[in-house]
Design a protein around this nucleic acid. Sequence first.
DNA 1: CTGAAAGCGCTAACAA
DNA 2: TTGTTAGCGCTTTCAG
Lengths: 349, 349
Amino acid sequence: MSTRTTRRSGAAPTRPTIRDIAREAGVSVATVSRVTHDDPRVTGETKQRVQEAIDRLGYTPSSLGRALSYQRTNTLGIVLPGLGGPYFAALIEGAESVAIQRGVAINVLGTHLRPDAAASVRQLAERTDGLIIAGGTLPEQELERLAKTSRIVLVAGESDTAPSVLTDGRAAAEELTRHLIEVHGHRRLQFVGEPAGSPDTTLRYAGFRDALAAHDLAEAGDPLHYGLDVRSGALAARQVHENGALPDALVCANDELAIGLLATLPGLGHRIPADVAITGFDDQSLAEIASPRLTTVHQPVAELGAHAAAGALGDDLASRTVLETRLVIRESCGCAPSDAPSALPGAAG
Amino acid sequence: MSTRTTRRSGAAPTRPTIRDIAREAGVSVATVSRVTHDDPRVTGETKQRVQEAIDRLGYTPSSLGRALSYQRTNTLGIVLPGLGGPYFAALIEGAESVAIQRGVAINVLGTHLRPDAAASVRQLAERTDGLIIAGGTLPEQELERLAKTSRIVLVAGESDTAPSVLTDGRAAAEELTRHLIEVHGHRRLQFVGEPAGSPDTTLRYAGFRDALAAHDLAEAGDPLHYGLDVRSGALAARQVHENGALPDALVCANDELAIGLLATLPGLGHRIPADVAITGFDDQSLAEIASPRLTTVHQPVAELGAHAAAGALGDDLASRTVLETRLVIRESCGCAPSDAPSALPGAAG
DNA sequence: CTGAAAGCGCTAACAA
DNA sequence: TTGTTAGCGCTTTCAG
């Protein structure tokens, strides 16, 4: 027995609109709107009548209607390759922390499974006030297009068209690699990860090579092209084992990859770090729990997300915001538990 | 020098609307709408003119406007406690696979950090055509309210008001625990996890107790109340160690918890499974990579997500859809690598 | 084949 | 203090 004015079929659930409330309370829609906005201009008595109608019918203003009227959705979009793994979870949490403060909802999109990533992102752009885009998910050309109508900020990547927040992965990787060479005397080092996979990995590989070059060392072998997850690490371990003659150290593109190696190599008869040193990147919580504990580079991932969120939501942002990293020496590089300082001074541009 | 009719301040980026295109092409908005819908009724010549205007101005129909008009958002919402961890990532991927097929966007909400979860979910409900809700994230009363205006389906949980898709965690946990008791002769078993934490954990604990009861065994100690992540597992390990006198077996609420134990206990001088057996739950990829490899229960998590998505998007769904689980025997329970069948017949209601 | 206009739920300027 | 109304971007009957 609904009083709705329009087409309705049968049982589809329907929500009361502002007009329903207005009618129920015997006022105009404007008054209802004022009540939902706590506008002080509305009389106590009227206000109460409206509020009762609202409660009785269970009304909530449609955010769709509001968005259309406001020309603002109160939503922040986040574009990532995928949503697996602790790195992206941390990034999202960082963004979420500022979104919550500002009463903004979050909408994350994983492009990985979407056949047409660009189209999905455009869609998302329409439904949000700003976009955080992970480096490497979209071609520069598409970023340009998006930048025309949306406020976008890149995280862990760079672009000419949008501000970005990132860390100096290249310097950090170099520092890490230097440690392996200078402190532990390793000479045969190999990189694990797909250098072309993401801007982050590209930079880490570059830093790895910088360190080698500074010491006139050649790579012990081409990079082992693997993804950034634990399973890939396990696969890489098997390949390393089958190749025979392990390098002195394996520098992994991220922690998960390193953990995969760490967990698999011992079963194959290789001791870490005695036979081969392993390092990670990111300093996820797994790094500290692994055994041996993982030497890695700490990144303020949540802060990356928070800064990016603030920027995407309208705060002024330098065209390039670089956050500090910190080398974290544990045992997987060969340092003994005792002589391992828990942290060393950081590296960043 | 925009031709927009309305208030515009300075440099805020603006998108062309259907009216801009209509004006540019010298037609009515209705015609433009038809072109964007490939309506065959529009003449080739006109159609081309409109299309050119669209391309020239870079127009894309506003999904907000469309949603308001259609009364449908083409978006699926997913409500989870948090977005960390492989379990939820897999769940989302399952849902995403059907969302992609149907040209629907996905919007996931992690309630964990949101101070007012219920309000956030209501908001989300307005912006979506259907909602997948993880068991335990919302009180029954709130589910009732949501069900009035949204199509909701529960995953890994149950409710009187909405259909649900889940596994029989209780039966699976019992089968797993029986294995520990009957095959390995363990007598002193303890549960790790917070039974009140989520419906899933509640059921697993119940199954654990069922098995003990069937053998007239008492718990070796109260459940160790820890979260469901790796770090919690490491903490639990420390507590177990400090309590002295380890139980024969530790039955963990999920794989991540188990992995945390697995990685930490050896460093504390306890060998697995010789000194203490460990089991997980879920069969995430880490389970196979851990050493010793983790005995656990396989759950079709992606399928849970896929079924739930289909239901939330309008497919008919039984009020209770139960998916099969499968006991996965590896080495952390004490089975030798050789005599461990990689899978055993499943348990499910 | 095309256009005018009403309507989706809401806000805000303007009137009263 | 309250109401009227135009408008946000789009779809869709109904005329023409």
